[in-house]
Design a protein around this nucleic acid. Structure first.
Length: 625
DNA sequence: GCAAGGTC
């Protein structure tokens, strides 16, 4: 035996899974003083190569160990002008509630020859790895430090990762360090500025914190943006030609290729030309197989979007529920960007676990009996976690109402991924009538396949079209003008908001729901229900404070070309891009912090000198509220 | 009394 190796994972669940695989189940478990979640696992493992047979102590942290804060001179709000926070010194220290975890690592490191870091293989994981390394080296400065590269906790994959350790990615860790410092400085500076300025303006704001965050504000911005589009909407009248033809007792509605026009006179002339031509000619008859694709493997963003659409839960509730299902071992890790399954995962074995279920067990059986298909692969892979999938079957009686809903969704989605696409047939008839083109479509669903188990999506046969021959001419039963009005867009719903955040790089899969909850808590936005019963959806409406902040910041920068508003996602996107440059090695942490601070400082001083504009917006919308 | 990101 050649010494002991200390292994540290990002969370207890990973430590447990990895320890189980490496030890073959034969480990000694011990608690650590001061924390009930973190455990130490002791066993032996043959790493092969230069490491050989070693004792192993496997433990974990609970996410980040440290926090970054201003020094005591700058902590009180009145201690300095807010702009000082852009260059006041910041200090990194072990968070109070993590001290015992940090000590455990330092103590264990003393008797070890090497440290293997098993944090998630994503950006934050690399940074957490450097935090772990620092603690371990404090216990034992001679420690050799390696990093395990793994993207799931499948047995063979874990063993392979243990035997071929690599190095921490310092660049990714540096990118995160830059993000941490920037978020703190910018968030604190703007929050203090606007809170102190606006609190004294209106009595309704006296004891409110009016926080600014590079994710909070753009999230609020999406909601206000939509609100103004709804509010400023002017309906317009349009006209269209509708052609109806009855054949074999089937009434066929042909829709106009131009959809509609906004000039009644023009549409009238076009209809007259159609009627003058008397006969319509069939220019296209198309009958072809069609399919509705089964869904992609489940990511966090998709879970939240689908969940708030179909399960009537908020993104935050869905995530909380998914986390509890995960800690109980029923589903895989719920925070993932990956929408492709690794080949090494035995999907059929996971399908088999669902056979006992009363609702979808039969369907799972069918997959095993020959209906199984390899899931489609999406284009995302975070290299840290597999798509969300069920790990074990659980009786519905063992779950509460929310857990039941989320678990059922995860299972049905998984089974749908492993199924055949739905199959159908579309018929398309195109006619020329006068100078105008019209079209009718019919759909027959032939095989529902995945839709049998994925009950959230609908795909139904439409009315069947009668037979039309290519080139035939007929006189339509009726042709007339219909009038309509354009309708305003709806207020933003949660799935739409999550999609916008995702597309604009606002927040991560783990934090999006938190940002939404935060701006509600800050009273920048509220929610209400649109519709009723099964079709009810929750929509977001800004408060007068939200509208005032949005408009105030837009007005502050509007006269300055190239100066983006704080309510738009642009500055955050730019910061994200710079972080990627650190990862690519084209920029350093110092350069990025400097550049990003300059960008935000420009807006800050502009806001400070034009603070009356922000105040005016608050007075405009909030007086009397 | 400030952020966003991990995780319980």
């Amino acid at each position: 035996m050649t010494g002991t190796i200390l292994c540290v994972a990002e969370k207890p669940a990973i430590a447990k899974a990895v320890a189980s695989h490496m030890s073959g189940g034969a480990f000694q478990l011990s608690n650590i003083p001061g924390n009930k979640y973190v455990k130490n696992y002791q066993f032996t493992f043959n790493f092969g190569g230069r490491w050989g047979q070693c004792s192993v102590t496997m433990t974990s942290v609970l996410g980040h160990l440290t926090e970054t804060e201003f020094g005591s001179h700058h902590r009180a709000w009145a201690s300095c002008p807010p702009e000082d926070l852009f260059d006041a010194p910041v200090y990194e220290s072990v968070a109070k509630d993590k001290v015992s975890i940090a000590q455990n690592i330092a103590v264990q490191a003393r008797s070890c020859r090497a440290l293997f870091i098993w944090t998630d293989c994503d950006r934050e994981g690399e940074h957490i790895g450097t935090e772990v390394r620092k603690q371990a080296l404090e216990g034992n400065p001679r420690l050799e430090v390696k990093r395990a590269k793994f993207s799931n906790t499948e047995r063979a994959h874990v063993l392979q990762a243990a035997r071929q350790p690599i190095e921490l990615d310092e660049r990714q860790a540096n990118a995160v360090a830059a993000r941490i410092e920037l978020d703190l400085r910018i968030g604190a500076a703007f929050t203090r500025l606007q809170t102190l300025q606006l609190q004294t303006l209106l009595s309704s704001l006296t004891d409110k914190v009016i926080s600014y965050g590079s994710c909070q504000f753009p999230t609020m911005g999406f909601i206000v943006d939509r609100y103004f589009r709804v509010k400023n909407f002017k309906p317009e009248t349009f006209w269209l030609i509708k052609v109806i033809h009855v054949r074999d007792d089937i009434k066929v509605n042909f829709s106009w290729r131009r959809v509609h026009l906004f000039d009644r006179a023009v549409v009238t002339i076009m209809l007259e030309r159609c009627l003058a031509a008397k006969k319509a000619r069939v220019t296209k008859v198309n009958e072809r197989p069609t399919s509705k694709w089964r869904p992609l493997p489940l990511t966090t963003v998709e879970l939240q979007m689908m969940g708030s659409k179909y399960l009537r839960m908020t993104g935050q509730d869905i995530m909380k529920t998914a986390e509890s299902l995960y800690t109980k071992g029923f589903i895989s890790y719920p925070r993932t960007e990956t929408d492709q399954f690794d080949k090494a995962i035995d999907l059929k074995k996971l399908v088999e676990k669902q056979v006992p279920d009363g609702s979808w067990g039969q369907y799972a059986r069918g997959l095993l009996d020959g209906n199984f298909r390899t899931p489609r692969s999406g284009r995302h892979n975070d290299q840290a976690h597999p798509p969300i999938h069920p790990i074990a079957w659980v009786s519905p009686t063992a779950l509460n109402a929310s857990e039941k809903k989320v678990y059922e969704f995860v299972v049905r989605r998984f089974l749908a991924c492993c199924s055949e696409d739905a199959k159908g047939k579309t018929t398309e008839v195109e006619i020329q009538y006068g100078e105008e083109m019209f079209q009718a479509k019919g759909l027959i669903v032939l095989e529902k396949n995945y839709l049998e188990v994925y009950v959230y999506e609908k795909w139904e046969s439409s009315q069947q079209l009668p037979v039309f021959q290519l080139g035939e001419e007929f006189e339509p039963t009726e042709a007339k003008i219909n009038e309509g009005k354009t309708t305003p867009p709806n207020y933003l719903t949660e799935p739409e908001l999550i999609a916008l955040m995702d597309a604009n790089g606002i927040g991560t899969d783990a934090t999006m729901a938190d940002h939404v909850a935060k701006i509600k808590d800050r009273e920048y936005v509220g929610t209400r229900t649109r519709g009723s019963g099964r079709s009810a959806v929750t929509e977001f409406i800004p408060t007068s404070l939200g509208v005032a902040l949005y408009e105030g910041y837009n007005n502050i920068v509007s006269a300055i070309p190239g100066c983006p508003s704080l309510s738009k996602p642009f500055l955050r996107k730019e910061m994200e891009q710079r972080m990627r440059e650190i990862c690519a090695g084209t920029k350093t942490r110092r350069e990025v912090i400097h550049e990003s601070l300059e960008r935000y400082q420009e807006v800050f001083y502009l806001t400070k000198s034009r603070i009356e504009i922000l105040k005016a917006a608050c007075q405009k919308y909030m007086l009397g509220s």
